[in-house]
C-alpha cells in the first residue's frame, strides 16, 4: 500500500548469505521429526489396507507418490477395489481433496517472495501440501527469513514423502497381517496427531475458533449432506469463526 511496499524487488542484505540449496537441506533434515513418524505409522496402516484390498505394491506406491494425501488415497483405493469408473472415481477423489485448495491458498503468502518466486516453483511446492506438511509449515515457516521458506518447505515435503514412500513399500512387503489392536491403534494415530498439531499451529483466536466449529460441524454435515460435507464444514464453520472473532476484535464495523 505504502511507497515502500511498491518498490517490490528491494534486496534484503541477508539474502546472499544462505543459498536456497542449504535451506532445502535444512528442510529435509527437519523432516526427521515426530510428524513424519506419525504420518509414516498412518501409511503403515494404509499399506495393510491396500494389501487386504488386493492392490499390488506398485499400485500402492503409485498412489502414495502421485496423490500424496491420505484421505484421497483411501477413497481411490475403495474405488479401485470396487471397479468404479474413471469419472465417478475422479469426482469422489476431487470431493475428498477440495480442502487442499484453501490450505494451499493460506500457505502462498507465507512462502512467496514478491517479484522473485516463479509460479512453477510454487506449483512444485504445492504437491507437498497435505495436512502434515501444512500444519508444520504454518507453525514453523513464519520464524524463518522469507527467502528461506520456499526451499525449506520443498526440502521438508520431499524429505517426508520419500521417507514415507519407502516405508510404505517396506511395510507392504513385511507386514503380513497386522494384529487387529495394532491396526486399530494406527488408525487413531492420525486424528489425534492432527488434533494436537492443528491446535499448536493456530496463531490467532480465529484459527482456534475455526477448529472448534469444524470439529462440531464436520460430523453434522457428514450425516445430513454426505459427499460435499467437508466443503460445507469449511465454508460454514470457517465463516462463522471468522465473523465471530472479527466482531470480538473490532465490533460490528
Amino acid at each position: 500500500m505504502t511507497a515502500s511496499d511498491r518498490s517490490a524487488p528491494a534486496k534484503t542484505p541477508l539474502e546472499p548469505l544462505v543459498p536456497s540449496r542449504v535451506w532445502m537441506l535444512r528442510g529435509a533434515r527437519s523432516a526427521i521429526s515426530i510428524p513424519a513418524f506419525i504420518l509414516t505409522a498412518a501409511f503403515v496402516g494404509y499399506a495393510g489396507l491396500a494389501r487386504e484390498t488386493g492392490l499390488t505394491i506398485y499400485e500402492t506406491l503409485a498412489l502414495t507418490g502421485f496423490v500424496w494425501a491420505l484421505p484421497s488415497i483411501v477413497v481411490l483405493t475403495g474405488a479401485l477395489s470396487s471397479g468404479m469408473g474413471l469419472i465417478p472415481a475422479g469426482i469422489a477423489v476431487a470431493l475428498a481433496s477440495v480442502r487442499l485448495m484453501p490450505m494451499t491458498m493460506a500457505l502462498m503468502p507465507l512462502i512467496k517472495v514478491e517479484g522473485k518466486t516463479k509460479n512453477w516453483q510454487l506449483l512444485v511446492a504445492s504437491h507437498f501440501v497435505a495436512v502434515t506438511a501444512w500444519v508444520f509449515a504454518m507453525k514453523h515457516l513464519p520464524d524463518l527469513p522469507r527467502e528461506g521458506r520456499l526451499p525449506f518447505f520443498i526440502g521438508f515435503g520431499a524429505g517426508v514423502s520419500s521417507f514415507v514412500f519407502c516405508m510404505t513399500g517396506i511395510s507392504y512387503l513385511l507386514v503380513e497381517n497386522l494384529p487387529e489392536v495394532v491396526a486399530g491403534a494406527l488408525f487413531l494415530l492420525t486424528p489425534v496427531y492432527f488434533l494436537c498439531s492443528l491446535w499448536g499451529a493456530s496463531r490467532l483466536n480465529a484459527d482456534r475458533a475455526a477448529m472448534i466449529t469444524g470439529l462440531v460441524l464436520g460430523p453434522l454435515f457428514f450425516i445430513y449432506l454426505p459427499g460435499l460435507d467437508l466443503l460445507w464444514t469449511g465454508l460454514a464453520g470457517g465463516t462463522l469463526a471468522y465473523l465471530g472473532t472479527r466482531i470480538a476484535r473490532r465490533g460490528l464495523s
Binding site: 489396507l49 495436512v131 488408525f187 464436520g218 464453520g237 465463516t239 469463526a241
Partner: peptide, 30 residues
C-alpha cells in the same frame, strides 16, 4: 487471508472429527 485460513482450518478439523466418529477399518469396531 484470515478468512481463508479459517476455512482451511475448519475443513481439517472436520476431517479429524470424521476420523474419530466414523473411522475406517477395524477401529470402527471399538
Amino acid at each position: 487471508l484470515i478468512w481463508v485460513r479459517c476455512v482451511a482450518t475448519a475443513l481439517v478439523a472436520g476431517v479429524i472429527s470424521k476420523l474419530i466418529l466414523f473411522p475406517q477399518g477395524i477401529l470402527a469396531e471399538t
